[in-house]
């Protein structure tokens, strides 16, 4: 998949590029609106990540312009402005999602995956996990047709780790995803351990869960 990152902060753009390339996306960087337009005219993209605060143009203007050039791409707005109004305008103009800065790169990737799933439609939302299968649409975890009863938070946690399999995930990253921006890190991240313990307890009744690894001092990782 090809991604165009329109972001004037070069360090930020490079970091996003570095991260996404590890997940096998192909990334181009554009540091201004004019550069972005040129890139879009030359190449087709699956994703366009658009920062609203560009030096040479209003990001929302660029969004409506680029929709004409690159109509098939999925757009995610990235902004530090975070105003509700911008968000509504952006989504009205046809953006697929909206991510306020600072965001976690994992969150960005999750959103991109969700958009891909939504757009492809026929993409199988059931993901295998050891002897289990996880149905992201129905929010169910199955072991040979047996439904395993996970709480809402436990399922959120498991699916998030599954979407970012083979990456080390810190407690902060997990609690930020589960509880949002107002999570109280020191305090909340302890609850992640409790949730993980519960997930292990509930699933290990049916089969081994050694794919769920604890990274001492850091966090957790699903390795498959």
């Amino acid at each position: 998949m090809k991604v165009l990152i329109v972001e004037d902060e070069r360090a930020m753009a490079k970091d996003m590029c570095f991260f996404l390339e590890k997940a096998f996306y192909l990334c181009d960087n554009a540091y201004s609106a004019s550069e972005a337009t040129r890139c879009m005219e030359e190449n087709g993209y699956d994703f366009i990540l658009l920062d609203l605060g560009l030096p040479d143009s209003d990001g929302l203007q660029l969004l409506s312009d680029s929709k004409k050039i690159c109509g098939n791409a999925s757009y995610i707005i990235l902004t530090a402005r975070g105003d509700l109004e911008d968000r509504i305008k952006g989504l009205d103009l046809g953006a697929d999602d909206y991510l306020p800065k600072p965001f976690s790169l994992l969150e960005l990737q999750s959103r991109m995956q969700a958009i891909s799933r939504r757009k492809s439609g026929n993409n199988d939302p059931v993901i295998g996990l050891g002897e289990f299968s996880v149905d992201l649409n129905k929010r169910a975890v199955l072991h040979e047709k047996t439904d395993i009863d996970l709480s809402r938070k436990e399922f959120d946690l498991l699916s998030y780790m599954l979407l970012h399999k083979n990456r080390p995930l810190t407690r902060f990253q997990l609690s930020e995803h589960i509880w949002g921006n107002f999570s109280d890190d020191d305090y909340d991240s302890n609850y992640i351990d409790v949730h993980i313990k519960n997930i292990r307890k509930k699933m290990s009744v049916y089969a081994t869960v050694d794919w769920l690894q604890t990274l001492r001092g850091v966090g957790y990782k699903i390795k498959i």
Binding site: M12, D15, M16, A80, K101, P102, P168, G217
Partner: peptide
Amino acid sequence: HELMTPISILKTNIENLLEDESLAEEHQE
């Protein structure tokens, strides 16, 4: 708003660092 951008950069930077599998445990900490 002005603080959000540098925080963003630092955050993505650190997240990328953690990805490095060859990182020693003390560095990870």
